[in-house]
Structure formats: structure tokens, C-alpha cells
């Protein structure tokens, strides 16, 4: 799986959402978005839910790790870095 890394910890709202939606719209199979954020990006997760994408959200030391893939049935736990 090819990782598209988006470190949004120092980005002003809503740049992380803009970039992640742009990646998700153009993302192909065999790719996944790996976003690191200082907040839990609820709107992005809701979009992933509505589109029936696979997603994983983990909070580690007050930093959020969000993984999203268009492929269903993928185990994102194996791909998270924490």
C-alpha cells in the first residue's frame, strides 16, 4: 500500500480538510491517506463514513493519527505508526 502522508499539525484550519479531501478525491486503489493532526477531524471522518471508505483514528500523546483508504476490508491497524 502506498502511503500519502499529510502532517497537518501546524496547518491552519481548514487547510488540512482541503488537502485531505483533495487527496481522497484523486486517490487510487493501493493507496491510503495517513494524516497526523492536533485535533480529531470529525468532518473528515464523517465523509469517510458516508463514502464507506475504510478508516482508522488513533490518539497517541494528544496527537491524532487518521488513516483512510478507498479499499474495503483492509486492516489499517497494520499500517499505523504508533
Amino acid at each position: 500500500m502506498k502511503k500519502i502522508l499529510l502532517d497537518a499539525r501546524e496547518m491552519e484550519h481548514p487547510i488540512p480538510l482541503q488537502l485531505s479531501l483533495s487527496y481522497l478525491q484523486s486517490m487510487g486503489s493501493g493507496e491510503f491517506l495517513y494524516m497526523i493532526h492536533r485535533k480529531n477531524p470529525i468532518p473528515l471522518i464523517e465523509i469517510a463514513k458516508e463514502k464507506k471508505y475504510s478508516y482508522l483514528v488513533k490518539n497517541h500523546n494528544d496527537t491524532w493519527h487518521i488513516l483512510i483508504s478507498k479499499e474495503s476490508g483492509i486492516d489499517l491497524e497494520d499500517l499505523v505508526d504508533v
Partner: peptide, 10 residues
């Protein structure tokens, strides 16, 4: 605009 609670886009 983020919420710490749940929210559907609808």
C-alpha cells in the same frame, strides 16, 4: 470546523 463530539455532515 471541528467538533469533539459526533456530527454527520447531513
Amino acid at each position: 470546523m471541528f467538533s469533539q463530539g459526533g456530527l454527520s455532515l447531513e
